[in-house]
Design a binder for these strands. Sequence first.
DNA 1: TAAGTGATCTCT
DNA 2: GAGATCACTTAA
Length: 191
Amino acid sequence: MQPLLMLRPAQHEGARVTMRRILKRAFFDRPTLVVAEELIGKFLVRERDGVSRASMLTEVEAYDGPKDKASHAFWGRTPRNAVMFGPAGVLYVYFTYGMHHMLNVTTGPEAYPAAILIRGVEGISGPGRLTKALGITRDLDRLPAAKATGLWFEDSGVVVPPRAIRRTGRIGVSYAGPLWSKRRYRFVWKA
DNA sequence: TAAGTGATCTCT
DNA sequence: GAGATCACTTAA
């Protein structure tokens, strides 16, 4: 049986008292690709009006370092992307295509620009649809991923076998050239 | 396959 | 301020 079917968000609600393990900054303060792969199978928890919803992560993309041509940080620090240059475990939410909010979480050490784009959770695929479904806007930009923020990451207890995670090139970044767009920086839980 | 939408950034 | 661009979605 697939782990995906063994523990669903609804069941997590009942198990939280003994299982809650919010991912701390130290989890994100590691190499971006490592964090990205380990995020698969973790919970993304969104709390609004006292109601929390946990969604299991199924798809993420890494944007790693100043040399990553597909990264917002490649052209240097700007007001928008400054948070990528800061400490790990901070939310980076930006608006694009005139209609979509994109949710990212920063990784790696201070001054090293990197973040992970949250592309999908169980039942929702596509980064724009995800933020719309969970009510994520730029109000959350620059805030730490923590309970006080209303958005955080949590260990689920699910162990995703490495062979269940497919690595592919990143989506929509062909402008960065084949070297960077084809790098296997996208992690997808192949259920 | 292309329209839609608006913030962001790079020029003037 | 103008113009180009954009880590996307949807309808066709």
